[in-house]
């Protein structure tokens, strides 16, 4: 019981202090590992790998994974609920305030600036994914040849996906499933 409460509380803190999502929870997790001895730096590397290779928000996957390792199925659920609790409370409050002030001139001016910024942040995140997905930086540093910089097979796959996406506009998950199949069949 005490362990569940501690799990809940520790992950409540992670949810409360990590701003920005995804890998933003990482520094708090390594701090937690050092303080509680629940898991090591190696475990964290494993956690990241598993969280990235399964669907769902990374922060949630990490919480479930740690909770599970520590205290079984219920531990995973408790840790996850702890992590999402602060965000739910805060967002519900903000949503209420936002509703009241949405028409105010100053709020509209703020959002005039926020929307392109939000787009820019998402574009940067997308470029971050593209860097990992399509470039082979380690090989490029070794050989220095431009042809080695890009993973051409994956660039080709990305191009094909983009063309079919624009043309057919099917559900995104279809493209993800197809890309996974292509990856396995052709061993990209």
């Amino acid at each position: 019981m005490i362990l569940y409460l501690r799990l809940w509380f520790e992950f409540f803190k992670v949810g409360l202090f990590s701003v920005g999502g995804g890998l933003a929870t990482l520094p708090f997790l390594s701090d937690m590992g050092q303080r509680t001895g629940w898991f090591s730096a190696n475990d964290i590397a494993d956690m990241i790998a598993v969280s990235e290779s399964t669907p769902g928000p990374m922060g949630i996957n990490m919480a479930t994974y740690v909770g599970n390792k520590m205290a079984g199925i219920l531990g995973g659920i408790v840790a996850t609920l702890g992590e999402i609790a602060p965000a739910i409370i805060l967002i519900l409050i903000i949503a209420r305030i936002l509703k009241q002030f949405k028409e105010a001139k100053v709020v509209q001016n703020i959002f005039y600036g926020l929307r392109p910024a939000s787009t820019g942040l998402i574009a940067a995140a997308g470029i971050g994914v593209a860097k990992i997905a399509l470039l082979r930086l380690d090989l490029f540093h070794k050989t220095g040849a431009f042809m080695d910089l890009l993973n051409w097979k994956l660039v080709l796959l990305a191009a094909v996906i983009y063309i079919t996406l624009v043309k057919f506009r099917k559900h995104p998950v279809l493209y993800i499933a197809a890309a996974a199949a292509v990856g396995i069949i052709f061993r990209l």
């Binding site: 990235e52 290779s53 929307r115 939000s118 787009t119 998402i122 574009a123 995140a125 997308g126 994914v129 593209a130 990992i132 997905a133 399509l134 994956l154 660039v155 796959l157 990305a158 996906i161 983009y162 996406l165 624009v166 995104p172 493209y175 993800i176 197809a178 890309a179 996974a180 199949a181 292509v182 990856g183 396995i184 061993r187 990209l188």
Partner: peptide, 22 residues
């Protein structure tokens, strides 16, 4: 192998989303 493919798809999907938002 699956994730090599999935990552390529994810960056295309994000690019498309960014164009719509932009």
């Amino acid at each position: 192998y699956a994730f090599d493919g999935i990552r390529a798809a994810v960056c295309v999907l994000i690019l498309d989303a960014v164009i719509k938002l932009g």
